[in-house]
Amino acid sequence: MTTKFEDLTIQNNFLFQHVMKNERICKLLIEELLNIKIAKLTYHHTEETIENSVDSRGIRLDVIVADENHTHYNLEMQVENRKSKDTGEPLLPKRTRYYQSSLDMDLLSKGQDFDKLNPTYIIFICAFDLFNQGRYVYTFKNRCLENLDLELNNGATVTIINSLGTKGNISPRAKSFLEYVNDKIVRDAFTQEIADEVTRLKRSSAVRRQYMLLEMKLHDARMDGREEGLAEGFAAGVLEAEAKERQSTALEMLKDKEPLTKIVKYSRLSEEEIYALAQANGLTVIE
């Protein structure tokens, strides 16, 4: 397992999601981070969904809550700034797009028309500064590039919280929470309440079993991906070896001045491939 259950902190998304099942803590945290007031929260769903997907897109740990105005909030803790293997760009921005579409589909599946889509907030609490600007909060809404004062007003907001921030105005309670994320030090009554909830959860045998089950599922998903990758690698290696063997056969037959039709038959290369091979090696194809 990546982390022992006893060593989990609020930075671990599994533990964070369980802490957020405490309605009072979840409500206060959203209020402080977004600088809003909420009368009451309703849990849309709190789930751990694991699918054996090699690219891990099926692995999600979500807390989705709604307030009295039916605004929906999706919260997640993010510790690692993962980047694309192809481009080196951070994956989190596109992950927010995926989460937004998933949340919208959940709402639409309940029979709502497009004009009835509720306002949504995707909130990622990050233990790193995604944009390297030192801000506590980065808030994104869809705006017109030609006129930044013109908002699309589609009700979708993405909020990236930077626990390492130093710039911007946030409440003392929000600041103490972010510092608690960083160093686990209790600084006020709110972080004490969170720390007490963490202690209670870590004493729960039921929560421990859930974590063990989650880790096993994650391990199985990784192993399935590894085995699939090995199988694909083996298949690619076989194909590469076969291609080299065909080229070697054709090359020897070209050197022996065998006719093209015979080389095609025994090497199983196309005429175009044989001509290219001959040209690359300064040989002549005998028609």
Results as ranks from 00 to 15, higher is better:
1 M>P: 11
2 T>D: 13
2 T>P: 09
4 K>V: 02
8 L>F: 04
8 L>P: 01
8 L>H: 04
10 I>Q: 07
14 F>L: 08
15 L>H: 03
16 F>P: 01
16 F>T: 01
18 H>I: 02
19 V>Y: 02
22 N>Y: 05
24 R>C: 06
26 C>S: 13
29 L>W: 07
30 I>T: 04
36 I>F: 03
39 A>H: 09
39 A>I: 09
41 L>M: 10
42 T>P: 00
43 Y>R: 12
46 T>N: 14
47 E>M: 11
50 I>W: 08
50 I>E: 08
50 I>H: 10
53 S>R: 12
54 V>N: 01
55 D>K: 11
56 S>I: 04
61 L>F: 13
62 D>R: 12
62 D>H: 14
64 I>A: 07
71 T>F: 00
72 H>I: 06
73 Y>M: 04
75 L>F: 02
77 M>E: 03
79 V>T: 13
82 R>G: 04
84 S>F: 09
85 K>F: 11
90 P>F: 06
92 L>W: 03
92 L>M: 14
93 P>Q: 07
97 R>T: 13
105 M>S: 11
106 D>W: 08
107 L>R: 06
108 L>M: 14
108 L>T: 07
110 K>Q: 15
112 Q>P: 00
115 D>H: 12
116 K>T: 03
116 K>F: 01
117 L>E: 01
118 N>L: 10
119 P>N: 11
119 P>E: 05
120 T>E: 08
122 I>R: 03
125 I>Q: 07
126 C>S: 10
126 C>P: 05
126 C>A: 14
129 D>A: 10
131 F>T: 02
131 F>E: 04
133 Q>Y: 10
134 G>V: 11
134 G>R: 12
135 R>H: 13
136 Y>A: 05
136 Y>K: 04
137 V>S: 04
138 Y>L: 05
139 T>M: 08
141 K>A: 06
148 L>V: 13
149 D>M: 04
149 D>Y: 03
149 D>C: 02
152 L>F: 11
153 N>S: 13
153 N>M: 06
153 N>Y: 00
155 G>Q: 06
155 G>A: 03
159 T>E: 11
159 T>F: 01
160 I>G: 00
162 N>E: 08
162 N>R: 05
163 S>V: 07
170 I>R: 02
170 I>Y: 00
170 I>C: 03
171 S>N: 09
176 S>L: 03
180 Y>T: 05
182 N>W: 00
182 N>A: 10
184 K>W: 09
185 I>A: 12
185 I>P: 00
190 F>W: 04
193 E>N: 09
193 E>K: 09
193 E>C: 08
195 A>T: 01
197 E>T: 13
198 V>G: 02
200 R>N: 11
201 L>C: 07
202 K>Y: 06
203 R>H: 11
204 S>W: 00
205 S>Y: 03
205 S>Q: 13
205 S>A: 13
213 L>D: 15
214 L>E: 14
218 L>F: 08
219 H>Q: 15
220 D>A: 12
222 R>H: 10
223 M>A: 11
224 D>Y: 12
227 E>A: 11
240 E>V: 10
241 A>G: 14
242 E>N: 13
243 A>S: 12
251 L>T: 09
261 T>Q: 14
262 K>V: 13
265 K>S: 15
266 Y>Q: 12
268 R>F: 02
270 S>T: 15
270 S>H: 04
273 E>M: 08
274 I>W: 01
277 L>P: 02
279 Q>L: 12
280 A>I: 03
281 N>P: 02
281 N>A: 08
286 I>V: 15
